[in-house]
Amino acid sequence: MRKVVIIFFCLLACISLHAQEVQDVTFKRVGNTIEICYRLQHLPPRQYTWIEIYYSLDDGKNWQGPLKRIAGDVGRVEYGGKKRVEWDVFSELEKINGILAFEVRASVEEKEERGENILLYSLSETAPLGLMFARVCRWGWFVRLKTDVRSCRGSDYECNRSGIINRDLRETYYRVEDEERKSRFGVSGGIVYRLSHSFYFFVGGGYGQRRVQWRASLYKYVDDSKMRDLWLQCEPDSFSGVELDGGGIFRYRRLCLSAGMSGINGKFWELSGGLGIIF
């Protein structure tokens, strides 16, 4: 077995181009290979880095390369973070005898802008069924539809928590029953901005509606006989008008999670979440 004679291990020099940084470079022998590790930082989502590794046997006075018999995070590197490369040293060199050093050379390239589609199943407390679709490069747009699939038909009267509002029910009285019906609908659209490779921000507006209705029974004062059922729309809990929608999307590879908040007329607010894919 060939022996690797390494007189001195040293940290290699780091090159910074276009705010691209290579840091924390180390290397060690692993069997008949040399493992080189480095950390890549500040990688904008619209750029990638082309990585090449050079070696020196005279403590960095003269550099040779780039290395050919290597595998791992070299060539086109898309994302920042901790990186690892394995060099099959004896396929390029017969022996190593000297002060060994490595240099990682990083050059920044602009990515060709390609749009991505985001499809999310979204839900909230009042709208358990929803879909969100977005189209994004650096900037993009989205549309969202939400509902609870229930419907509230027209109500007989409006009420607050104290009773029916501005209605004269002479010779009759009513009793609110333990039954209610609710409905929720919203449609919105807006802009999406890609803050980084893993995070997007969206904000927009549209139309939203939430209705809460209570069932009541109407009786005659004379004989307490029931006349009919009433549906009372609870105005403090019912809203319709401008729906505001905003939040963030976190991605991991092709999967994504969303979290946000929506409201109607700035009065009714609720949290929302979602799970989807990027394609």
Rank of each mutant, 00 (worst) to 15 (best):
F201I: 15
C159Q: 12
G208F: 07
G206H: 11
E177I: 04
D148T: 02
G208K: 09
S162Y: 10
Y173W: 06
S217L: 14
N166V: 00
F142I: 10
Y193C: 05
G204Q: 05
R150H: 11
N160Y: 00
L195A: 15
V176Y: 05
R153Y: 11
G154H: 10
L195I: 15
Y200F: 12
S198G: 08
D168A: 03
S198N: 12
R215C: 05
D168R: 04
D168S: 07
F201D: 01
Q213A: 14
W214C: 04
Q209D: 13
E177W: 03
E180H: 06
E171R: 06
G205E: 02
S155N: 13
R210F: 13
V149C: 12
D178G: 07
S151L: 15
G206C: 13
V222H: 07
D168F: 06
G190D: 05
F142V: 11
R150I: 00
G205Q: 03
Y200W: 11
S162L: 09
S198D: 15
Y193K: 11
Y207Q: 10
H197V: 09
Y207A: 09
R211V: 00
C152W: 01
Y221P: 00
G204K: 01
R215D: 01
Y193M: 06
W141M: 09
V143W: 12
G186H: 05
R150F: 03
Q209C: 13
R211I: 03
R161P: 02
V222W: 09
V176P: 01
E158Y: 08
F201S: 09
C159W: 00
Y219M: 07
C159V: 02
Y219F: 13
Y207L: 15
S183L: 00
W141E: 03
V212R: 08
D178W: 05
W139R: 02
E180I: 02
S188G: 08
T147A: 11
D168Y: 09
R184S: 12
S188N: 04
F142S: 04
G204H: 14
R153E: 12
Y200D: 09
R167H: 11
Y173R: 00
D168W: 03
G163M: 08
T147H: 10
K146P: 01
G190I: 08
E177K: 09
R150M: 08
V212P: 02
I164W: 00
G154R: 10
D148G: 03
L169P: 04
V143H: 02
G189S: 10
S188E: 11
Q209M: 14
F201T: 10
R211W: 14
Y193A: 07
S196M: 06
C152P: 03
R144N: 12
